[in-house]
Amino acid sequence: MKNNVSILVVDDEPIVCDSCKKILTEKGFTVETALNGEEALKKFKKGDLDIVIVDLKMPGIDGMEVLQSVKKSKPEVDVVMITGYGTIPSAVEAMKLGAADYVPKPFTPKELGQIISQVVEKRSKLVAEKAPKKGAILLDVFKKPSKVAYHPERVWVKDIKIEEALDENFLNEVRSTPGGERVMDCMQCGTCSGSCPLSYRMDYTPREINAMVRAGLRDEVLSSNSIWMCSSCYLCTVRCPRQIKITDIMYALKNLAMKDKRFLKKAKSPLLSKYFVAIVNRYGRNHELELTLKFFLRANPRAILKHSLMGLRLFLRKRFSLFPKRIKNINQLRTMVRKAEALGGLR
């Protein structure tokens, strides 16, 4: 029963490594081991791993650091912590940093097997969800996408919301932007989210975002995928019975997240925005080819190949230009941009 999931086990005790390897190999996984953090990271860089099981407490590079660097370079890899302490704080800390699960030491083969198969199951679901359904049916068979779908930016675990941790000023930040003035009027009817073509995939629906802004959940809002999913269709805005300009609020939140760079680790939309801004500041106009190339090189190099055929077809129809067009008075534009920048934005 070989499957194609490969796992790296990291523990400074060889006996743990070996027994894990034995248990997991029996279950059909491909397993490698490493005896310390340094070795683990080397192997990780080389191989195409799916899951890393790592001991929290190790000399040198410890489990927490391994977790962090794995998540940083390949967020799609799941990390399971082995902890000798089994205490809530260290486990929660690890989960916050993106660990998929943890196994308290000592553990039985059955326990390890269970935890790993849960992780694998979750992975396969996510992969399945990512790949759209095929088949020549007229009607889609709709499967409700799970709300906890995988988001690289999202590292939050559910916990009690402590007043102390809320950001009182968040509401004012949003209220002081054009369009954000009426956020207090929201009656939580859900018309916005029900109308939104994308809310079903958002971490939090536009309605929830409003409530969270009011409550001061700054970090959750700014790190959510919701704000980057908004396609600016303004349907929510024209339908809101309280005439709240939700689309404008989304823009305000994007701006805030942009400024506060820690929220942007792997999100693609901010990247696109950044390149676009650079091009416009350079030429005064957009240059589609340059934008596409730059963006995909960073975000998804493989996609360039996929897109190149379409690019060629567009090119043949003279719908792609190799060279940018710069406006004549670019200096005027740049002076203006600089001044606006110096004014420090809207808030």
Binding site: T177, P178, S231, S232, Y251, A252, K254, N255, M258, S269, P270, L272, S273, K274, F276, V277, V280, N286, V337, A340, E341, L343, G345, L346
Partner: peptide
């Protein structure tokens, strides 16, 4: 500026 610049910085 389209939606993309607006997402980056509203005032500009």
């Amino acid at each position: 500026g389209a939606t993309v610049y607006l997402s980056y910085e509203e005032l500009i």
